[in-house]
Design a protein around this nucleic acid. Structure first.
Length: 779
DNA sequence: CTAAGAACTTAGCACGAGGTGT
DNA sequence: ACACCTCGTGCTAAGTTCTTAG
């Protein structure tokens, strides 16, 4: 069997994790199924984004496994027509039956709504087939519809719905001028509302690093001036350097304060208004089932904040008018009213797409859409399909690897290049790398668009990667590649005229994907990323300690997650307060160790003979310097004194209210002195090792206390380790997009970890289709 | 075929609500 | 009760891939 190919996963220095400078082999074997670990360097990048990059991970052995998709319950599936009638009236829609009701059999239906013939047409025209799975409109509301148990859970991909009702989109409110004057050349100037709005956008950016970016400033100022010129009531503003927006920023900050200081009632009111909006625009009815809409708010005007060196960053993104917005809605549904005095661009009824509204944004001319939320059936189904596709790849990946290894030596350069590119996509989980429009977008690359300047070859089949990928995130990785891959890279390099030349000049993503699709319908470059991520995750989970605590298991889970994040190069900026947070945790640990140290001494005091039998009791705690202890003791003293003073005050107040006279100051002072004494005592005890022992204390009791402290130290240490390892790595993206949630669910069942320890509410909601797998389910 | 357009997934970050420790 | 932080959430930019136009 082809999958005998086990790979050689070498565990990357997990203990030292992240920062290890370990370099590892990528793969090696000539066997067609290499796989292996990725090297990881973890050096600080010099990139402006001040991130650390790395990429590595193990790719693991293939587990063969029959993949069962969730069982379907075919009997049910009786089509029922939704009764959605025109308006949204929740009352009409019976509230759901509670969720957990186990597999519900399709509830017998009730009235069917007459179907719009045109709509039917549409659904049939594309492919005819596909009976859309819709049932039980009764159950409406919440997640009642268990599409993954329905007959054709996959849907066929062309017809996305039969009926669709919604209330359109929400437009941000008109601009309300604040009349705060900016300064030009030191003098206050008045701006017309339109210009004031733009000035305010800039003012709001003053505390960000955008304003240090000349491109941002140039683009902003060009667009700002154009707006200024629209009215001759605006002052002549010619020189950006003479502009001072700080008065507006101050105003914004004051407003923010005000908002913070609002009364409970006011806040409550705002909240309700927001809720009302969500009520109206936040839901739609798709095939009669209530679904959450993702982004029903039209994007408000702003300054475009492109990432990295985006040439258009800072440009003014204009307010979107209803006249630009196209609405997509069911034929039978009531068309939402555009805002008063306005019209929609158009209203269409296309049931082969999933969006409810669309418009074109002016800065990059990108098309924007209003889609359903992540927990909707539509999104859930396509998520499911994505992972099933990746699982299909599992069965043929050996063949694909075999083929590209063979193609590595093909005489046709294009084929060699393709093979080499596939190797990177497969082994390093690189993105496809489409061409980008020069001068219109940031210069970032993926596999097919790599240039010679992005790799450096080193003897020993070593390749250093260093380039900016999606979102201008730096990808740095050092990898030992297969010998033939190395030879190919050298070969391609021979023909280069410039470092700016494409590494794979005969390959593009369309071709590459076309080739991939010859192996399997729907196979594209990105499937490898999904496959590799989920596969790696599943393998890494094997390191879960079987008898560990829940916390330790979760740590293992997060480690596995982290390996995937590293593989996919998912990064985040280091939090400004990171060092601080770290110091706090360390202090916390030291405080615990201090406690433990005292407990140990107590034991020895109780039973001096233990010194011989249990020499470890006499050993000092690591990390607990003399100096630190003194400081800590002082700190304890201060805290105690504070407490005493407060208590004193409180007592006095109480006495006053009871008509008694105040306690005397000397009483307090006495107590304060006691606290000081206590410190001295602590210090003395620490130095002599002779503890003052309470009668009730016994060796056994103290021992138990030590055990407890040890537990706590362990827990805090775990959080410290995690925090460190997560410094620059973002786990969320892979969890949300790349890791098959069924792996996680199965792991939870197998290891008895509550699912909400790893999936928050929205993830559980998004992945509800994945929650019912067997604990032995395999990706 | 190639290029542009359209549709949908993937991505990091800002911000604020709510929980936690003092 | 308060500051402080954590974490979830919303936002929208930036990718990939599919589709259509030329």
């Amino acid at each position: 069997m082809k999958d005998a190919e086990l790979e050689s996963v070498k565990k990357v220095g997990k203990a030292n994790g992240k920062k290890s400078a370990v370099k590892e082999e990528l793969s090696d074997s000539e066997s067609d199924v290499p796989l292996g670990k990725r090297g990881n360097k973890g050096k600080k990048s010099a990139t402006p984004s001040k991130r650390t990059t790395r990429a590595n991970t193990a790719n693991a052995a293939q587990v063969k496994q029959e993949n069962k998709t969730p069982k379907t319950n075919d009997t049910k599936a009786k089509r029922k027509r939704n009764e959605s009638d025109s308006e949204f009236d929740d009352k009409k829609r019976p509230a759901k039956s509670t969720a957990k009701s186990a597999v519900k059999k399709a509830s017998p239906q009730k009235k069917k709504k007459k179907e719009d013939p045109a709509e039917k047409d549409m659904s049939e025209k594309k492919k005819g087939k596909q009976k859309v799975v819709k049932e039980e409109s009764d159950e409406e509301d919440d997640e009642e519809y268990r599409w993954w148990e329905a007959e054709n859970a996959k849907g066929d991909g062309t017809v996305k719905w039969n009926t669709l009702e919604h209330n359109g989109v929400y437009f941000p409110p008109e601009y309300v001028p604040h009349n705060v004057k900016m300064k030009y050349d030191g003098k206050e100037v008045h701006l017309e509302p339109e210009a004031e709005e733009v000035a305010t956008f800039y003012a709001a950016a003053l505390n960000t690093e955008h304003v240090e970016n000349p491109t941002f400033n140039e683009n902003f100022f060009r667009d700002f001036k154009a707006i200024l010129d629209k009215s001759d009531k605006n002052p002549p503003i010619e020189d950006f350097k003479k502009c001072d927006f700080t008065p507006i920023l101050d105003h914004l900050e004051r407003e923010k304060e005000k908002r913070k200081a609002m009364s409970k009632e006011e806040k409550q009111k705002l909240k309700e208004e927001k809720l009302q909006l969500e009520e109206k625009y936040g839901y739609c009815y798709l095939d009669g089932r209530k679904q959450k809409v993702g982004n029903f708010r039209i994007e408000p005007p702003s300054l475009f904040r492109g990432r990295g060196k985006h040439p258009k960053t800072g440009s003014l993104k204009l307010r979107v008018q209803p006249e630009q917005v196209t609405i997509n809605i069911g034929k039978a549904a009531k068309v939402p009213e555009p805002p008063a005095g306005h019209n929609w661009n158009k209203v269409i009824h296309d049931n082969t797409v999933t969006w409810l509204a669309t418009w074109k944004e002016n800065v990059n001319e990108n098309i924007k859409y209003v889609f359903l939320a992540a927990n909707s059936t539509l999104k859930g189904q396509s998520d499911f399909k994505k992972f099933e596709k990746a699982r299909e790849l599992k069965d043929i990946v050996a063949k694909i690897r075999h083929d590209y290894n063979k193609d590595m030596t093909n005489k046709v350069t294009a084929i060699r290049q393709r093979a080499t590119a596939m190797y990177f996509i497969d082994r390093l989980a690189l993105r496809a790398g489409n061409e980008k429009k020069e001068g219109e977008e940031a210069d970032t690359v993926g596999c097919c668009s790599l240039r010679f300047e992005h790799i450096r070859l080193e003897a020993g089949n070593t390749v250093h990667f260093d380039f900016l990928g999606k979102d201008s995130i730096r990808y740095q990785n050092t990898v030992t590649v297969d010998g033939q891959v190395f030879k190919n890279l050298k070969l391609f390099q021979r023909h280069k005229e410039s470092d700016k030349d494409q590494l794979f000049d005969r390959v593009n993503t369309q071709e590459l994907n076309k080739h991939l699709s010859s192996y399997m319908d729907g196979l594209t470059a990105k499937v490898f990323r999904t496959y590799n991520a989920s596969h790696t995750f599943q393998e890494q989970l094997k390191n879960t300690p079987v008898s560990g605590s829940v916390n330790e298991k979760i740590l293992a889970y997060n480690r596995a997650n982290r390996e995937v994040a590293i593989l996919c190069n998912h990064q985040r900026t280091v939090s400004k307060t990171f060092d601080n947070q770290m110091n706090r945790i360390e202090d916390k640990i030291r405080a615990l160790k201090y406690q433990k140290m005292r407990l140990k001494k107590t034991m020895l005091t109780l039973d001096p003979k233990l010194k011989k039998k249990r020499p470890e009791l006499d050993e000092p705690e690591s990390d607990l310097g003399e100096e630190w202890c003194e400081e800590y003791e002082k700190h304890l003293e201060e805290k105690e004194k504070d407490r005493l003073r407060k208590k004193f005050e409180k007592d006095n107040e109480k006495r006053k209210s009871e008509g008694k006279g105040p306690l005397s100051e000397s009483e307090l002072n006495e107590q304060l002195e006691e606290a000081e004494e206590k410190t001295k005592q602590l210090s003395k005890e620490r130095k002599t090792g002779k503890m003052e022992v309470k009668k009730s204390q016994t060796v056994e009791k103290v021992e138990a206390q030590i055990e407890k402290v040890n537990e706590r130290i362990k827990v805090v240490n775990l959080t410290k380790v995690e925090k460190e390892e997560n410094k620059t790595t973002a786990l969320g993206t892979s969890k949300i997009n790349y890791i098959d949630p069924r792996i996680s669910a199965a792991w939870c069942y197998k290891h008895d970890v509550p699912i909400d320890k790893i999936f928050n509410k929205s993830l559980r909601d998004k992945f509800k289709w994945a929650m019912e797998v067997d604990k032995n389910w395999k990706f």
